[in-house]
Nucleic acid binder design. Structure first.
Length: 423
RNA sequence: GUGGUUGUGGUGAAGUUGGUUAACACUCUGGAUUGUGGCUCCAGCAUUCGCGGGUUCGAGUCCCGUCAAUCACCCCA
């Protein structure tokens, strides 16, 4: 045997065997729930012009270090998509979906995303995200709907210890006021903060609230709360969101320090995390509302709301909680062939399959014993034995593996006989 | 990007201060049983220890590099 030459590139994975069943099950759940909630699938390209993903204020770390960016043969500057929202919005604007009479346009996407991160627990360079975007309307009820859909999927996956961390950044006006207040509050302590916080102070002071190093600093504990800077409209909006969650009995916790990574969020931001976790590395889905994003793509003043969900993490949680049960693989018929029977076995197998019966056979001329073992492994309900005698007489032996009876059956009656046993 | 740990057959793994045939278990293949399985018994399955180089009479064991995994940070659109 030649030696093995290749290994997976760092941060990628092969999904196969039993895991594939879990993924398929999750995908089914997602399709089903999206159908119920009225979200239609959109499939955007896996790469786009780099500018699609680069927002005006995105911190350079994300863009420079974590995107798979390349030039194609015509020197176009392209990037593998690091997330789903931007592509969906680009498509929304490009195809003028806002012409649709029914706003919002509700979309979902699912598929691989790429980030040049160092791989960690449940983190890959090619990973899979599912996400939704409701574009073209602004309503606290719509925010709640997105959370409800995410929560429904999580529950359908058998994960039931998830809580929604939620906060409101307020509209542009509120946000600007709060940012100003934060800056003046932090100014005197700035020298005592970590280098990251000093950088964030300039770029995006809201982000400082996420800092784990300076968390306990008195300057942090006494920092002004986002909530106190919401104007009346934003307050009412947020109150309605919370009431909506109450009504739907979705467990949530208002978290003043939740600001999310990106700058485009306004008003509602949320993050679904497992309850017993320390809130670290365990976000299941996260999203928020965005007033200005569509316009940066040239789509006008349309609001949107949506979330992204990490599918690898969902699978991991579902496995931990044994929520997703995949029924074991079973076949109806295993065909054992003996001696030289030409293509008789294949003919029988095809006959069964074309009649909707799951059937397998041996392809290696193995011993009778080995073939019986295979039949056991497949948990076949019926075993058919076809040897030279049967071939000559155009019959088979059909054995019921449950009551262990066996009888000689003519070729024409195989399907009826098998069906009578497995039904 | 930083630091730690790890890498032996299809799987789980043992491998003592470097010493010649790489333990054991499961699985698999064949046979006992030449056409009736699940039990039992017997036999077989790694020219080689992630990959590359070095030290040595001798390397799975030591050294360097590299690839990958994993954990804790950083980050997480």
């Amino acid at each position: 045997m030649a030696e093995m030459k290749f290994q997976l590139p760092r941060g990628t994975q092969d999904i196969y065997g039993e895991d594939v069943s879990l993924w398929q099950k999750m995908e089914e759940i997602i399709y089903r729930q999206c159908e119920l909630y009225g979200y239609k699938e959109i499939r955007t390209p896996i790469f786009e012009h780099t500018e699609v993903f680069v927002g005006e204020n995105d911190s350079s770390d994300m863009v420079n270090k974590e995107m798979y960016t390349f030039k194609d043969k015509s020197q176009r500057d392209l990037s593998l998509r690091p997330e789903g929202t931007k592509g969906a919005i680009r498509a929304f604007v490009e195809h003028k979906m806002y012409g649709n009479a029914d706003m919002p346009v509700k979309l979902f996407y699912m598929g691989p995303m790429f980030r040049y991160d160092r791989p960690g627990k449940g983190r890959y360079r090619q990973f899979n995200q599912f996400g939704i975007e409701a574009i073209g309307a602004k309503s606290p009820l719509l925010d709640v709907e997105t959370i409800a859909l995410g929560y429904a999927i999580v529950k359908a996956m058998g994960i039931d210890n998830v809580v929604i961390l939620i906060n409101s950044l307020g509209d542009d006006e509120s946000r600007a006021n709060y940012t100003k207040a934060l800056k003046s509050h932090f100014a005197p302590y700035l020298k005592e903060f970590c280098s990251d916080c000093q950088r964030r102070y300039q770029q995006n002071p809201l982000r400082m609230l996420d800092c784990k190093i300076d968390k306990g600093h008195q300057g942090f504990t006494s920092a002004p709360k986002c909530r106190d800077y919401l104007n009346e409209e934003s307050k009412a909006y947020f109150a309605t969101v919370l009431k909506g969650l109450d009504d739907l009995k979705i467990p949530y916790k208002v978290d003043d320090s939740l600001v999310r990574g990106l700058d485009y969020y306004t008003n509602t931001v949320y993050e679904a995390v497992p309850k017993d976790d320390d809130g670290q590395q365990a976000t299941v889905f996260a999203g928020g509302q965005y007033d200005g994003l569509v316009d940066t793509f040239g789509g006008g003043q349309l609001s949107g709301v949506g979330f992204g969900m990490g599918m690898e993490r969902m699978i991991a949680l579902a496995k931990e909680q044994k929520g997703l049960v995949v029924e074991e693989e079973k076949i109806d018929v295993y065909l054992i062939s003996l001696g030289n029977i030409s293509t008789y076995g294949a003919k029988i197998i095809e006959l069964l399959r074309s009649n909707g019966i799951k059937a397998e056979m041996d392809y290696q001329k193995r011993s009778l014993k080995a073939q019986f073992k295979s039949a056991d492994r497949y948990k076949a309900k019926v075993i058919i034995v076809a040897g030279e005698n049967e071939y000559d007489n155009n019959t088979v032996q059909i054995k019921d593996t449950v009551d262990k009876t066996q009888e000689n059956v003519r070729f024409e009656e195989i399907v009826d006989k098998v069906k009578s046993i497995i039904c």
